[in-house]
């Protein structure tokens, strides 16, 4: 909320040509550590989503800094393009690839961690050295070029001297979009298998079309471990849970028959336990 009010009051209080107002100084010193923190999150976060959130933080803060630096147009574009589109795309891909795929931090390349750290620090040191030793002119500020508001000034350049580059970039974007389509396109090698195809296959293989029968319910026995009987009085072995059958905890129809009393049409030979072992499940 405070940031929003800062943003709204920016054009009045912070943008002041080449000079840096105290408001801008404050904004910078609030945002700069946040941005470094977010960037370090990218470097150290174990989960990719956290890294992405760190980058989002950096990018939104950058949008503030752009606005503070008399580039409100770029600030808006930064939010729309980077935070809105690019980072969302990143998050989508993260979801696609597997969000809980946390990166192991164990380094596999020998010495890479030291080399990377040294090079990173070296780059930082060299760049900061350059900036610290260089002398800059007194900042001119953009008051004059931004006289007709910043978007108008930027548009004059883009659609004026840079119009050709602009068109080329448009072509590039289209090419990239097409390229992405081509890259992610998957050739269909086998015909699509839908509900109808599955049903047809089941009928063709002669499998069971109706749901499995429930386990046996007899006058005196009402248990999961007893097979149901079909209309002809034969036990349906599949009706007993597969787990019970594998564990050998089912009761055979013969055992039950003894208690129930000869209602079944089965011959004893038909209900050998060997028949109802593994593999009878369709």
């Amino acid at each position: 909320m405070t940031q929003l009010s800062v943003l709204l009051s920016l054009p009045a209080s912070i943008t002041s040509g080449g000079n840096v107002s105290s408001g801008e100084t404050a904004l910078f010193w609030v945002l700069a550590p946040l941005m470094v923190f977010g960037a370090l999150g990218l470097l150290f976060a174990r989960k990719a989503v956290h890294a992405a959130l760190g980058i989002v933080l950096v990018m939104i803060s950058l949008a503030f800094l752009y606005t503070a630096q008399e580039a409100p147009f770029l600030g808006v574009v930064q939010v729309v393009v980077y935070t809105g589109a690019v980072m969302m795309l990143f998050l989508f891909v993260l979801m696609l690839v597997g969000v809980d795929n946390s990166d192991s931090l164990v380094e596999t390349l020998k010495g890479q961690r030291w080399i990377g750290a040294i090079l990173g620090l070296g780059i930082a040191a060299a760049l900061i050295g350059v900036i610290r030793t260089a002398t800059f002119d007194q900042a001119k500020g953009l008051t004059a070029p931004n006289a007709d508001s910043n978007p108008v000034g930027v548009a004059r350049v883009i659609f004026g001297q840079d119009i050709f580059a602009f068109e080329v970039v448009g072509v590039l974007l289209i090419t990239a979009a097409l390229g992405a389509l081509v890259l992610t396109h998957r050739q269909r090698l086998v015909p699509r298998v839908g509900q109808k195809e599955r049903a047809d296959a089941r009928v063709a293989s002669g499998g069971r079309l109706a749901p499995l029968a429930a386990p046996g319910v007899y006058a005196r026995s009402n248990a999961m471990d007893t097979p149901a009987l079909d209309p002809e009085g034969r036990p349906i072995e599949e009706s007993v849970s597969r787990v019970l059958r594998t564990r050998g905890q089912r009761r055979s129809a013969t055992e039950v028959e003894a208690q129930v009393g000869g209602t079944s049409a089965i011959e004893p030979a038909q209900i050998e336990p060997a028949q109802i072992e593994e593999g009878t499940q369709p």
Partner: peptide, 22 residues
């Protein structure tokens, strides 16, 4: 064959160039 090693080489070259130019 590890892309990161190659990247490290590139950055090292960049750094050396930067230092030499400066």
């Amino acid at each position: 064959g590890y892309a990161r090693s190659y990247a490290a080489t590139m950055v090292a070259g960049l750094l050396i160039l930067l230092v030499v130019v400066l």
